[in-house]
Design a protein around this nucleic acid. Structure first.
Lengths: 248, 248
DNA sequence: TACGGCTGTTAACATACTTGAACTCCTCTC
DNA sequence: GAGAGGAGTTCAAGTATGTTAACAGCCGTA
């Protein structure tokens, strides 16, 4: 079935992600790595890791790949409410709510650690810095969600798409997934539409406009940001809401 | 200045709110009441309890009055990202993020308890049920924020406004602020516009439509829902995301 | 009692965005 | 190697929503 999972530095993105929020202790890192080794899983593109209505029994930590949280209306309209990137957790504590109120779908092949509730609680109890970092991540997710509300509610299409690109860029940075000014970008225009509350056609137009202005190149699942400063300006983007300790 | 604050059943809405998420223990309720007594404050309509960029040092629990969280863009566009109702807390744990990424403004006169970080941590440590209930509330807030993203991103104006009314109704219910099928509704059409991502004029048109269909009466800060079932249908509303234990 | 400011209402007009459809280019599969 | 399906692109036409403006009612205040 699946090829064996290489164990090398699988936990690297998670550690980098959490370290950007709270300095992890040696002990915390060790505990985290151990918990991850014990619950490795994979998912394929298009597969749902969780579906609205499912009971919640475990926490998932994403080691590689992209996912999205989404909800659908009865008539099929879909809204992506967030992207989940390598190093992110699927709600450190969502199990406090016994049932999923949204679905989680894989956009690419995904490697993740599935940690059952008791093991996760032990993990939190085992190291203070780890506990704080994970709560912190949950809080940042709320902040991101608020910013999405602003983005969709009050920005016009061009600003809106630009803002999303800026956010993803900023989130990929600390986990080391930006190479120069480029990164893998496995998001279809339809996904972009569902994430920005626009139609596919209009997302296409908007991307053309960003390309035409020389701000970005987006081709073959590869995004290059030619002028980050200008892109942030057109997006009215400020990274404050990501609460990430600045590098350097 | 302010009239003295009557201490009678001030904590009542908070207790009811938290009880709807997790059954509070006797001890938890006692601790909560004590903490609230010790930090009573008031705010006036239009006043900001917190401003984007402020350091976060305490948790606030709302005893009476309505508030909203909002963010503004550099050019003045404003988006309300959530309403805060009696019994709600202002982010039990937002202090994990040292700086506010949004503002909190009072829509009406407000009574609240301001609990400093050390006192709050003691409170959480003092009772397990209380701790869980407060975390739970934080998680529900995230869920609400996700639903707002869907609402603004994928529902048309009529559905969108109807959905907001349904949510507020549903949230006011467990704290005992619905009288028959009516409630106080101290939200201007401009606030509604900023909450739904619409213009004031279009909110007005939409309200007329809801009135015309006989679904609601909204006059003099008083909202009456004539046909809740139909309102929910037109809003495509399902209360699942509020994760509230159902009465009866 | 007059005034200014806030809120709600309505109208006319402008436009950003949606819808539906057609076409291309891929890639996958049989 | 033909066919099907997913993704991107473009066009034309339609509409939901925004903008600007004017006015009315209400309230507090000078």
């Amino acid at each position: 079935m699946h090829p064996p999972i290489l164990e090398g530095n699988l936990a690297q993105p998670v550690i980098r992600r959490l370290n950007a929020l709270r300095q992890l202790s040696e002990r915390g890192i060790a505990l985290l790595q151990q918990a991850i080794q014990e619950g490795l899983h994979r998912a394929r593109p298009g597969e749902d890791l969780a579906t609205e209505g499912d009971p919640v029994e475990s926490v998932r930590i994403i080691l590689s790949g992209w996912l999205c949280r989404y909800k659908t209306l009865p008539d099929g309209r879909r809204q992506i409410v967030n992207f989940i990137l390598p190093g992110d957790s699927c709600d450190a504590c969502v199990y406090l709510l016994s049932v999923m109120d949204h679905s989680i779908g894989a956009l690419t092949p995904v490697t993740y650690a599935d940690i059952k509730r008791p093991a996760f609680e032990q993990l939190l109890a085992g190291d203070r810095s780890l506990e704080e970092a994970l709560w912190c991540e949950t809080m940042v997710n709320s902040a991101i969600q608020r910013e999405w509300t602003v983005n969709i509610g009050r920005r016009v299409a061009l600003e809106r798409v630009a803002h999303l690109l800026c956010e993803l860029h900023e989130r990929l940075l600390p986990v080391g997934m930006i190479d120069g000014d480029s990164c893998l970008f496995p998001v279809t225009q339809m996904d972009l539409a569902d994430a920005t509350g626009l139609s596919v056609v209009h997302v296409n137009r908007t991307l053309q406009e960003l390309r035409g202005a020389g701000l970005i190149v987006l081709r073959d699942r590869m995004l290059t940001i030619n002028d980050l400063k200008l892109l942030k300006d057109t997006a009215l983007f400020s990274a404050d809401y990501l609460h990430t300790k600045r590098r350097g």
